[in-house]
């Protein structure tokens, strides 16, 4: 079951690595990704396509807790409509 996840990050050292680590630990695989810099290169905007059977809502809540994450929105069949935090 695939889900879409859009994040805006403060591009601090290790920010992307940290996001990907949470995604792996919470039971998802990245199957597609697009990233672009914002505000010079101080922020990153990322769109991820994720595969996994766990709750994407739960993943979204964990991503939202990360220090670098400015916003996160996700959409997956599991939750029907997009959730945003």
């Amino acid at each position: 079951m695939n889900a879409l996840c859009s994040l805006t990050l403060n591009n601090l050292e290790g920010a992307l690595e940290r996001v990907l680590g949470v995604i792996r630990f919470r039971g998802f695989r990245v199957v597609g990704m697009h990233a672009s810099s914002m505000r010079g290169d101080s922020a990153l905007q990322i769109q991820l396509e994720l595969a996994g059977t766990r709750s994407v809502t739960h993943l979204t809540k964990h991503l939202a807790k990360l220090y670098e994450v400015l916003s996160v929105q996700s959409q997956g069949a599991e939750q029907g409509v997009g959730g945003s935090i």
């Binding site: 050292e13 290790g14 690595e17 940290r18 680590g21 630990f25 990360l66 220090y67």
Partner: peptide, 16 residues
């Protein structure tokens, strides 16, 4: 250290 501790801390800082 930043990488090793990443999954077990609330956050890690590495000042350059």
């Amino acid at each position: 250290v930043l990488g090793i501790t990443m999954p077990i801390v609330k956050h890690s800082f590495l000042p350059r």
